[in-house]
Design a protein around this nucleic acid. Structure first.
Lengths: 194, 194
DNA sequence: GTCTATAATATGATAGAC
DNA sequence: GTCTATCATATTATAGAC
């Protein structure tokens, strides 16, 4: 991808995150990248194609991060969940602009593109589901409904993208640490008192 | 408000929740209410005014619900948090269309209208904050950062509006019960084992 | 109060010069 | 590859008949 093509992607990410896909015009994107509207279509097929690229890349980056986190974590559900929640939460905080598009602009995707990212979202859910079930089987997680626990753990991370701000009260790492511990408590792992 | 005025509000709620404010046209709203585009402006000043009415009413309803829930709960932080989280979570699930607009369409409000609802959101945060601090003072909640705990508790409820579906795996009450228990665990209240 | 018609503007995307 | 100019359409909102 050319330098201008990349700048257009970045401008589109900033605009879509701030104003939503339908609230953003191709002129906004062009201006944000320092070119005129006509130049957009040399680098990208359409506005929706820009959205799809941002959304797909964001979904793939999240899924890759969680997979490699699980790969590198010790063979212990508690430590795996701690690491998974920390990295997931940190990703949503650090990349909150991209994450907002990933989480809140699904409805603006074309049916085909939506099907693509929906498959990635299902993979992510199954990954967390497997971990929760291993923790249950090992007797270290106590949850009454594993499916609801999975949704709630993911919820805890996703919603960070909605409220996190770069100049807010906490750093991405502080949020990640807090949410990671919250996730452990949620599945019944009692933290050492301090 | 006239019958048609109300039907327009309902159609706008459904459309804004499904496609976002900017993804919805005044024709969508008119058609959804069974009238022609011109009739919209007899009942509502503008599209943004419709959004504001939905958003303000949704915020006020949530805040009223949480206030009356706290008023009626026993004088015990654990039971108060259990009740608060249950009612908050249930509201987000039952009213997930309105809640989506409340939580995700803030950026489409005019600056004046945004200031209005931002004040209501701050009141809600302070209400939860007070409860968490009373639980800390009573020694029944153990959280390392009260502010982050407040954000996380609210997060748990808000994000329900994003994923809840009327024909999903769980009823609003099941979700509310799960999220309510999650909230208690999050602040360090260990549930009785079963 | 609702309709049809339309004004005024904005929007996604393309054409053709450079 | 970028620009200016523009096409075709869509959009919010209003005017005036009924």
């Amino acid at each position: 991808m050319s330098e201008t093509g990349r700048r257009l992607l970045e401008a589109a990410t900033a605009a879509f995150a701030a104003k939503g896909f339908h609230g953003t015009t191709t002129r906004d994107i062009a201006t944000g990248a320092g070119v005129t509207p006509g130049a957009v279509y040399v680098h990208h097929r359409s506005k929706e194609e820009l959205l799809f690229q941002i959304s797909r890349h964001g979904h793939e980056a999240t899924l890759d991060l969680l997979r490699s986190t699980l790969d590198q974590a010790p063979d212990d559900p508690v430590e795996q969940l701690r690491a998974l929640m920390f990295e997931f939460a940190r990703w949503e905080a650090v990349h909150h602009t991209t994450a907002r598009i990933v989480n809140y602009e699904l409805q603006a995707l074309s049916p085909e593109h939506l099907a693509d990212v929906t498959a990635l979202r299902r993979d992510l859910r199954l990954l967390v589901r497997g971990l929760v079930e291993r923790g249950q089987a090992a007797g270290v997680f106590t949850v009454s409904d594993a499916g609801l626990a999975v949704v709630t753990l993911i919820s805890l991370c996703i919603d960070i993208a909605r409220w996190f701000s770069d100049d807010g009260e906490w750093t991405a790492e502080q949020v990640a640490a807090g949410v990671s511990e919250a996730g452990l408590r949620l599945v019944g792992v009692v933290p050492p008192s301090r």
